[in-house]
Structures are given as structure tokens and as C-alpha cells.
Simulated scan of single mutants.
Amino acid sequence: MSEIEVIFSPSTEDSGTFKLLELPPDLLKLVEAAVEGNSSLALSVKGGLEEDAVLCTDEKTYTMRSVVLSNSVLVVTPPQTEEGQVDRIAIRDQLHDVIELVPSLPKLHKLKGILRGAEYDEGHEDEEMDDEDIPAESSPMRRKFTYADALQLQASEGELRRGLRDMRILNVGGRLRPISPSFLNTILELILNHLVSESVPHNAVPVDQLCLALEEHEIRRTVTLQVLAWFGVIRGPSWEMNVDEVLKQVALGILRPHKDEPVSEDEFLAQWKRAVSDTFEAQVSLTLLEGNYLSTTLPNRFPALPALLYFPSSSLPIDPAARFTDLFLTRSRWKAQDIAPYLADIAVDSKERDKLLLKYARAMTDAEGVWYITRNKI
């Protein structure tokens, strides 16, 4: 029987220097593929002093949390195999916990506060946002917040790119600036008018021609190209429009003023169809606006007329407990299909969404079906 001599490491610097990381299946596959293909894999740990650390790949974010092990794990060196010597292993460290990686949502909500006051609006086309043009009382990050700065947020680069697109944030002169909703709708309406007037198919729009047309309205090419990338795909000299995304944005521009006073559903749909022209009116549907409106009725009308109120999920808190509090303050009960869109941006997947519903709400059934009500009194 072979013998192995166990010794403690002579170095006092080893203790506490090792951490055991448990890889979820999808991340393990990335690591194995990188090893087998002899390619690089970029992993980064992000988080400030007041934040929980996250680990980011190119496309996903994982929360890092410590889980206590029932049995201790010893970190040892490989056995020595020199001829004539007894095999030896040295205990380098003793681990009592493992770092678990849990898929999580990117922490991009901070962008709203950081970029407040830097909105890009109509009339800013020639503005370069030089430092001297910005009030001295503005914070350094607000005065000059770049894409490189945003990479330090707790999100993968892929999630950051998608977040900037979904939040409609431009990169202008090297700085990140959210575009004004009204100005964005103006650009989209000009694009739709161009397609109709020039009889251009929406899935093969000449990019240069469209940029020149918008430059006549003093909209810079760099802004146009970013807007086109948000609402479609640029392939070489042509742009293919994502019709649903354009229709949704146009509708939000019409609905946004009705945050306190409802608008008749029929009136809203009629305005929406007029705004997108005959070419796209057949694709107008309220399903495109899920998570952005509440169905209600016009006050003081009999019989009751269906109406809509602007209520975007993006305006609600990111913290789940606060999110549910706001939802149940707005409505005392919700149908599953109505509340689900308001949880999409705080849950990684439908499984986590269902866990949130179990934690913060309870189901009840009546003749109309299943409803969710609050678990706690508000």
C-alpha cells in the first residue's frame, strides 16, 4: 500500500487566500468550451463597497453569495512523485464555505439617476456637451459619463448594450445621453413619413437616403443610425425595420400624457392608427403595450366606456417588496396576465417571477378566474 505524507504548508500566507467557486451548468459549459478550444474567456467581478459582488460573463450577470459547507474542504498541493521520496501533500488552506453563483438581472437602474439632466432633445443637434457648458454643481459622473464608465456597472457588456437600447440612451460625442421621448417620437414619425412618401419597403430601407432625409430636419447622422439600430437591423446599406417596436414607441408617445386622466380606448386606437398610416394600421394592437397601461373606464359615462391610463413598469421601484407595494396600492387585485408584465424586469425568468408572487401575493379564485391580492396589509 502506497503512503502519502501529509504536512501543513510552511507558508503562513496561504491561509484565507483560497475561495471555492461553484459554477452553474451554463457557465461550466463556457469554461469547458474555452479550455477545449484553447480560447480566452472574460470573467469580471464587479461591485462597490455598499454592493453585493456579481460575476459577469460577456452576456450574463451572476450574484455571488457565500454558502456554508457542512464539511470542511482542504486545499492541498499535488503529491510529489520524485523517485526515492515518499509522496507528500501540503495542506494550503481550509475552506468552510463555497461561493454560489445565481443568475441575476443586470444592475442598470442607476443609469436613470446618473444621467438625469443630460437628456438629448430637439435643438441639441449641434451641442457637444463640453464640460464648461455643464453647471459646476453637477456631479463628475453626471458631467461626463461615458460608455467606459457604464461598463463598471454591475452588468455584462451584452446586457449593457441591450439596456442602453431599451432605455433609449444615445452615445453622443462620447457621452451617454437619454433621448427625449418626444424627440424620439418625432424621429420615428419622420421615418414613417419617409417610407410612405418614397414608397420604400420597411424591410429594405436605404440607410444613406434615410439619413439624408432626416438631416434636412437637422437630425444628425450619428443619432439617426443609433435610432435605426434600436428599432431594427442595419445590414450593409439597408435597414430592416422592427415594425412592432416602432408601433409600440409611437403608441407610448400618444399614451404618455394620460398618466392621470384616462383616454378612451377607441380614441387612442384611432390616434395610433393615424400616426402610423394605412401601411401599418392593421398591426396596431394593445398587446404591444403590455406593462405600460391600465385598463379602466371613462369617469361619469354611462354606459361605461373602456379607457386607458399610462402606467409603465419602468416607473416602478426595482426592489420587489416596493414593487408589489406600489402595484397593490394602484389596484387591490390583479389577474395573472395583467401583473406578469410588471414583474418581467425584476425576475430573471418565469420561475423566479412565480416565487415572487408566492412571497408577496396570494391567489384567490372567483367566477372571473384567478386573482392575486397582497399578502400583507398596506
Rank of each mutant, 00 (worst) to 15 (best):
Asp121Ser: 13
Pro106Tyr: 10
Ala150Met: 04
Ile134Tyr: 07
Leu153Ser: 01
Ala155Lys: 01
Glu127Thr: 00
Glu119His: 02
Glu159Val: 08
Ile89Gln: 10
Glu127Tyr: 03
Gln85Cys: 08
Glu159His: 05
Lys144Cys: 14
Ser104Ile: 10
Ser139Lys: 04
Glu122Leu: 11
Asp87Gly: 15
Ala90Ile: 07
Val102Trp: 03
Tyr147Arg: 11
Asp130Tyr: 09
Ala90Phe: 11
Arg142Phe: 04
Ser156Met: 07
Glu100Cys: 05
Lys112Thr: 13
Gln152His: 12
His124Ile: 00
Arg92Val: 05
Glu157Cys: 02
Asp93Val: 14
Leu111Trp: 03
Gln154Tyr: 07
Asp93Asn: 12
Leu105His: 07
Glu128Phe: 01
Leu101Met: 05
Glu119Met: 08
Asp87Ala: 15
Leu153Cys: 02
Thr146Ile: 12
Leu111Ile: 07
Val86Asp: 08
Glu122Tyr: 06
Glu128Lys: 03
Ala155Gly: 04
Ile114Val: 14
Arg142Gly: 13
Val102Ile: 13
Glu122Arg: 10
Glu127Asn: 01
Gln154Ile: 11
Ala155Thr: 05
Asp130Met: 06
Ala155Val: 04
Glu125Ile: 02
Asp87Glu: 15
His109Cys: 14
Arg142Tyr: 02
Glu125Gly: 07
Val102Gly: 01
Ser156Pro: 00
Ile134His: 06
Ile134Val: 14
Leu101Arg: 03
Leu105Trp: 04
Leu95Phe: 14
Ile91Glu: 06
Glu132Lys: 11
Tyr120Gln: 00
Ile89Asp: 08
Ser139Trp: 02
Pro103Leu: 15
Ile89Tyr: 08
Thr146Phe: 12
Gly113Ile: 09
Gln154Lys: 13
